[in-house]
Design a binder for these strands. Structure first.
Lengths: 206, 206
DNA sequence: CTATAATGCGAGCATTCACTCGCTTTTCCT
DNA sequence: AGGAAAAGCGAGTGAATGCTCGCATTATAG
């Protein structure tokens, strides 16, 4: 079981190799989704693009759905990391500043790999993942709610859960529509949208 | 070409029959989508449920996609009729009243055949229909914009197109999220949401 | 009534696709 | 070195599915 490294602590090569395979598969899936769409993303094609065999694919992913789910998870994780960091950095800011920052981050986060984001939003038949996706959704609501409760004094009297729902819906909607129109969105336009959304949400909260 | 009716002006039976077939097909498609999901909606199955043969199906719809598109169109038409009527009845109302009414209608409209709505939103890979769907989207934006321009005096100074974008995004987001949580939405809750959304939008406009 | 067109039929074709299995190659460990 | 375990391979399988095509049935016109 335990062993001494001869000269250098050699990494477990076999684990490395398989990790690389898994990564290649997820990466290939994402690339095909973006460049050719969901319909063209067959398991054979994915394995082909990843440079591995279908057999290997099925050693790590029990089904095609699992692969797509992995892509979704990876993307959501990337987004959530940005979002979590933003909330951490915003906890003590007053409402106006905090909202402006969060709106900005929301739009930025939606623009991580925007093409993939669009495909996931438009082409993937959502089913089953509900658990995963709803977990993220709940986390965001919880974060907003926590912030709002912490800053109660700056706001009118309102149920924090309800306020969180309204804020999240609004901000997500704007961010979402911004990605979908991605190409024709100038920097200026984004700034304006941030301003407007901030105004809307802040005005609502107090 | 022209012919005299023997006793009663008989409707062109053959046209009637084919219309019935088309209707049955669309109806069957919608039912399968709702009850079994997009994946189970094969052309054979649709024809089967509609009580016609696959051959007949392909006489009226060039592809499976066309059938689904027909279902979507039908549903969007139903929604748009309600929405158009609402705008007509609201044109002369002041902002507060108008927004409240429009928010209510938006939520109601999203609840026309809510199960179908959910399936269309969650399971249908959107592609190509962009033209159709965007037409509706544009119409709504135009309607909102027209209303806002008509009531400029009640608002702060703001670009009507931008304001329309913000209002539509917000209202649609709330309505959308309301359908998705459809089951656990009490009447009371809906009322509260209407109030909150109205407050948010009205507060934003002035 | 008969000819012609419209509508409907459904077995079957061609294709695609998710997935399996028996085998080979690579890596690890002593 | 040598054997075992891990990783990889890819032709093949069976099932599903979109769609066609030759024929049957029904309606219309003269």
């Amino acid at each position: 079981m335990a062993r001494k490294p001869p000269t250098k602590p050699r990494k477990n090569a076999s684990q490395e190799r398989s990790r690389a395979t898994v990564d290649a598969l997820i990466e290939a899936t994402a690339r095909i989704l973006v460049k050719e769409g969901f319909e063209k993303a067959s398991t054979n094609r994915i394995a082909d693009v990843a440079g591995v065999s279908v057999g290997s694919l099925y050693q790590y992913f029990p089904s095609k759905e699992a692969l797509v789910a992995a892509v979704i998870d990876r993307h959501n994780d990337a987004i959530m990391n940005v979002v979590r960091a933003a909330f951490a950095g915003v906890a003590d800011l007053p409402i106006e500043k905090a909202v402006r920052r969060l709106v900005t981050v929301a739009i930025e986060a939606h623009h991580i790999d925007p093409n993939l984001h669009r495909v996931l939003a438009e082409q993937i038949p959502r089913s089953g993942h509900l658990a995963e996706v709803e977990a993220y959704s709940h986390e965001i609501h919880a974060l907003v709610r926590a912030y709002l409760e912490r800053h109660r004094k700056e706001m009118r009297k309102i149920d924090p859960a309800l306020a969180a729902f309204m804020c999240v819906s609004t901000i997500e909607a704007v961010a979402h529509n911004t990605v979908l129109n991605g190409e024709m969105m100038s920097e200026k336009m984004v700034k304006v949208l941030v301003d407007e959304t901030t105004r809307m949400v802040v005005g609502y909260l107090r």
